[in-house]
Amino acid sequence: MTTLFTAPTRVGAYARLAKLDIWDYYLAVPLAWSLCGPARDDPAALATLGLFLIGAVGVVAGAVAFDDVAGFRDGRDWANCAPRDSASAAAPPRRRLHRKPLLTGELTEREAVLFGWGATLFGLLVWTWTVAFAEHHPLWSVLLLAGCFFGAVQYSRGIKISYRGLQEVVLAGFGAGLVLAAVGLCTGELTGFAVVQAALFGFGPLLVGVYANTRDARGDASVGRPTAAVLLTGRGNRLFIAALTAAEVGLVVAASLLGAAPWWFALAMLPATGLRAAQLRHGVGYGDLAGARLLGLHAHRVTVSLLILVNLFAPLLGGH
C-alpha cells in the first residue's frame, strides 16, 4: 500500500496508534478517587490509583493497537476511512487517515503488533503490581480487573470479541469495570451509588461508539464485524441508540427516586442530560453522526465532572 505522507516523528505515529488523544476511559480513575470517601486523602490509596492509571494506559494502548492491526489486515479501516460515496476510493482523505499510522505507512504491521504486545504486557505487569500494592484486594475487584484486561486484549485479537457481536457490551463493561475495580482496590467496599455511577461511566464510551459504528457500518459489514449498526435496520439502529440514551437518563432519575442517590442527583445531572438530548437530535434526528460522536465525548466528560462534584459535595448537602 502506498505511503501517503510521512509523520514528523515516529513517536507521534506510536502515540496515534495508542490513541493517546482519546483519554476518556482514563477518567475512571478521578471518578474512582471521588468515590473513595475518607480514603481520598490516604497516600496508599492515591498511590494505588496512580499505578492503576498507568496500567490502564498500557492496556488500552495495546487494545487499540491490536484493533488497528485487525482493521488493517481485513481492510475495514481502509473502507471506513474512504469517502462516504465510494468505499473503493484509492485515496481516502488525509484527515481520516491521520489517526491510522498503519494506513499511512508510518508504521509497519510488525511494528504495530510488537507495540501492542509491549503495551499489553506493560499494563498487565503494572496492574499486577497495583493489586499486590493495594491495601484492599477483594476477590470481586480482582476479578473485575481481570475481566477488563481479558476484554481489552481479546477485543480485536485472539477470540476477537468485537467480531462476535459483543462490541457494545465491551465498550460499556470495560469502563464500568475500571471504576468499580479501582474503588475496590482503594476501599474494599462497594455501594449501590458507586454501581450507578460506574454504569453511567460505561454509557459514555458506549454512546460514542454506537454513533461511530453507524458511520462505519458499511466497512464493518464488508468484513463480517457484526455491530448493532450492521445487524439492525437503519430504523432499528436509530431506535437502539434512542433506547440507550433513554436508559442512561432513566438510570439517573431512578437512582434519585429509589434512594440509591441523593434526591437532588437528577437535578445535578441536568447539564449532562441536555447534552445527551442534543447528541440524540444531531445523530438520530439530523443524521450528523460525526457531530453526535463529538457531542458524546463532551457529554461523557461533563457527566464524569458532575459525578465527581456530586461525590465531593454530597456529604455537605445531606446526600450519600
Rank of each mutant, 00 (worst) to 15 (best):
M1T: 12
L4A: 12
L4R: 14
A7H: 11
R10H: 10
R10T: 15
V11H: 04
A13G: 01
A15Y: 03
A18F: 00
D21P: 01
I22Q: 07
Y25W: 14
Y25H: 15
L27W: 14
V29C: 07
P30R: 03
P30W: 10
W33G: 03
C36K: 04
R40A: 11
R40C: 04
D42C: 11
L46D: 02
A47Q: 04
A47R: 13
T48I: 03
G55E: 05
V60A: 07
G62L: 04
A63G: 05
V64S: 04
V69P: 00
F72G: 09
R73M: 02
R73S: 06
G75C: 10
R76V: 08
R76F: 04
W78V: 09
W78S: 02
A79L: 14
C81Y: 05
A82R: 08
R84Q: 14
D85Y: 03
A89M: 00
A91K: 01
P93R: 00
R95M: 11
R95L: 10
R95N: 13
R96L: 12
L97M: 15
R99M: 00
K100G: 11
K100V: 11
P101V: 09
L102V: 11
L103D: 02
L107V: 07
R110A: 15
R110F: 01
A112K: 03
L114S: 11
F122V: 00
W127P: 04
A132R: 13
A134Q: 10
E135A: 15
P138A: 14
S141L: 02
V142Q: 01
L144A: 14
L144N: 08
A146S: 06
A146W: 09
C148K: 01
S156C: 12
S156Q: 08
G158A: 05
I159R: 08
K160W: 02
S162P: 06
R164A: 12
Q167G: 15
E168V: 08
A172E: 09
A176F: 05
G177A: 11
A181L: 07
A181E: 11
A181D: 10
A182Q: 12
C186E: 06
T187Q: 05
T191P: 00
T191A: 07
V196L: 13
A198K: 04
L200S: 07
F201C: 13
G202C: 05
V208G: 03
G209S: 13
T214G: 15
T214W: 15
R218D: 14
R218K: 13
G219R: 09
R225Q: 04
L232C: 10
L232F: 14
R235H: 14
R238S: 10
F240Q: 02
L244C: 15
L251Y: 01
V253I: 15
S256D: 08
L257R: 15
L257P: 03
G259E: 03
A260V: 15
A261E: 13
A268Q: 04
L270W: 14
L270N: 00
L270Y: 06
P271E: 10
L275T: 06
L275D: 12
R276W: 02
G287I: 12
L289R: 01
G291F: 07
G291V: 04
H300E: 14
H300M: 12
H300F: 08
L306E: 09
L307F: 13
I308C: 14
V310N: 03
L312Y: 02
L312M: 12
G318S: 13
